[in-house]
Design a protein around this nucleic acid. Structure first.
Length: 472
RNA sequence: CGGGGUAUAGCACAGUUGGCUAGUGCGCUCGGUUUGGGACCGAGAGGCCGCAGGUUCGAGUCCUGCUACCCCGACCA
């Protein structure tokens, strides 16, 4: 097995090495698409389970809508279609004949869902409508990278319908907070949150809220978004309800989602030169046992001890690596690439003392424990590792978030350090665009809506204070 | 769509001014020695050299035309 390129040498190559060496995914024969392998899929599956629980706790029901969207339906909302048309895959033939109406492979499901929502909703008693879908979507992006940007990706899209702005605002923020909690508690990821600028918001939305993580190469990565769609789609898709007063009113809507990009986010935020570091909460394997033996007697005794450990830790995801033909050193390295939080080494020396070696992936520390105390030690250690990963990521984020007062300083920090840069902004799209053209940095989120200070580019009174960064 | 590159075994690559039998490392199979930080020895299996033409006694190698993929931009979860 080849070694991994160090992060400092070529981050992009390092990333691709991890995806390959940790057996997360392969390139597929279909351009821009990937084959997600069992280990990579298991990570996504664990995220899915965790998030699905949170979604259901909020009273949101799962549904499934078709993959194909009739072209006319997608075109119903002007801003939305302008945003998505260039990246749509289109089906023109079916049953050997040219279709009377082209079908768009969904880039997102607003249009096809909302056309149906207009039938589902008549009265204020039908609201709020809280719907979620786990699905695949296709966006024909020009440049792709496994997990971080693929032509086809898996995601969760929540779609809710409310009586008024207050209802939609509340839901958009509830979803955002759900993502913040999920990122923190399960993925051990600290995120920056806030509103997007108008230029960066979702096509057709009133406003977009975002969670932004910071990769170890200093670039921002959008982890999740939550949109207040206002009444835009209500008007295009004719979704109205009769209020208590008997009047017809437009509904207010939200949509929110996270994707398989989160798997890539884990890699770029937690990974090191040895490979991936999986947060215990969503690690496919939380503890791996590597038995070490010279002969068959040792092997039998050690495997028996290992099986006892598995049963002591039956509430955890524990695996015994009893493969023949690989040396322990090889196995150690391989499980480190895959980011397994805890490794147990059990050999003849340990067995004599009824003990084993416990190695942490996050700190590389090794300690010896009695076999009989593992059932109390391991759960504690897993929590500790989960917390430690969050702390490390948080420190990194803090160290790489800087405030600047001038454009020169902005450019210097961006070039030399990267990370999030806090700066004043006059609110004009011209300045935003110009900064992007000159530096490649974009506004990730708005920090303060009202701000006293100057726009770093034009020097006018700043309306807002925003976080800039180069982004994935 | 611009700029750069690559195409040879599952993967990473070498293959000279054309030369006869297609190479190396990793991985894989078998046998043995090993096993506490990516083991070693030996024996094997595995190829339409991206596709189509052309030049030549002879093409992986030279010429022409395709096609695909990768990297850097523009677009974006």
């Amino acid at each position: 097995m080849s070694r991994i390129t160090p992060q400092s040498e070529d981050f992009s190559q390092w990333y691709l090495d991890i995806v390959k060496e940790a057996e997360l995914a392969d390139y597929s024969k279909v351009k821009g698409c990937m084959v997600i392998k069992p280990y990579g899929y298991a990570i996504w599956e664990n995220m899915q389970k965790d998030l699905d629980r949170r979604i259901k706790e909020a009273g949101v029901k799962n549904v499934y809508f078709p993959l194909f969207i009739p072209e006319s339906l997608l075109q119903r909302e002007k801003d939305h279609v302008e945003g998505f048309a260039p990246e749509c895959a289109v089906v023109t033939h079916g049953g050997g004949k040219e279709l009377a109406e082209k079908l768009i492979v969904r880039p997102t499901s607003e249009t096809i869902m909302y056309d149906t929502f207009s039938d589902w909703i008549q009265s204020y008693r039908d609201l709020p409508l809280l719907i979620n879908q786990w699905a695949n979507v296709v966006r024909w992006e020009m440049r792709t990278r496994p997990f971080l940007r693929t032509t086809e990706f898996l995601w969760q899209e929540g779609h809710t319908v409310h009586k008024d702005k207050a209802g939609a605002d509340e839901e958009a923020h509830r979803a955002l907070n759900m993502y913040i909690d999920f990122d923190r508690e399960s993925l051990a990821l600290p995120v920056l949150t806030g509103k997007k600028s108008d230029k960066e918001k979702f096509a057709g939305a009133l406003y977009t809220l975002s969670t932004e993580a910071l990769a170890k190469d200093g670039r921002a990565i959008q982890a999740g978004t939550s949109h207040n769609l206002g009444t835009t789609f209500a008007k295009s898709f004719n979704i109205q309800y009769q209020s208590e007063e008997g009047k017809l009113e437009d509904v207010w809507q939200t949509s929110w989602g996270v994707s398989t990009r989160l798997v890539g986010t884990l890699i770029v935020c937690h990974g090191d030169d040895k490979g991936l570091k999986m947060p215990p909460k969503i690690a496919p394997i939380q503890v791996v046992i590597v038995p070490i033996f010279r002969n068959d007697e040792d092997k039998t005794a050690i495997l028996d001890a290992a099986k006892q450990v598995v049963s002591d830790l039956k509430n955890f995801r524990v695996e015994i690596d009893n493969r023949d033909g690989q040396t322990p050193g090889y196995k150690f390295a391989q499980w480190e690439v895959k980011g397994v939080p805890i490794r147990l080494e059990i050999g003849p020396r340990d067995l004599e003392n009824n003990s084993c070696i416990v190695a942490r992936r996050d700190t590389s520390e090794k300690e010896t424990y009695e076999l009989s105390e593992l059932f109390t030690v391991i759960p504690k250690l897993l929590d500790e590792i989960q917390d430690n990963l969050y702390e490390e990521a948080l420190n990194f984020q803090k160290e790489n978030t800087r405030k600047v007062d001038s454009y020169d300083e902005f450019k210097t920090v961006l070039e030399e350090k990267g990370g999030f840069i806090l700066a004043g902004w006059c609110g004009s799209e011209d300045c935003e665009q110009k900064i992007q053209d000159e530096t490649k940095a974009t506004i990730r989120v708005i920090d303060e809506e009202e701000h006293i200070g100057k726009c770093i580019l034009c020097g006018a009174e700043a309306k807002q204070r925003v976080y800039f960064a180069k982004a994935y």
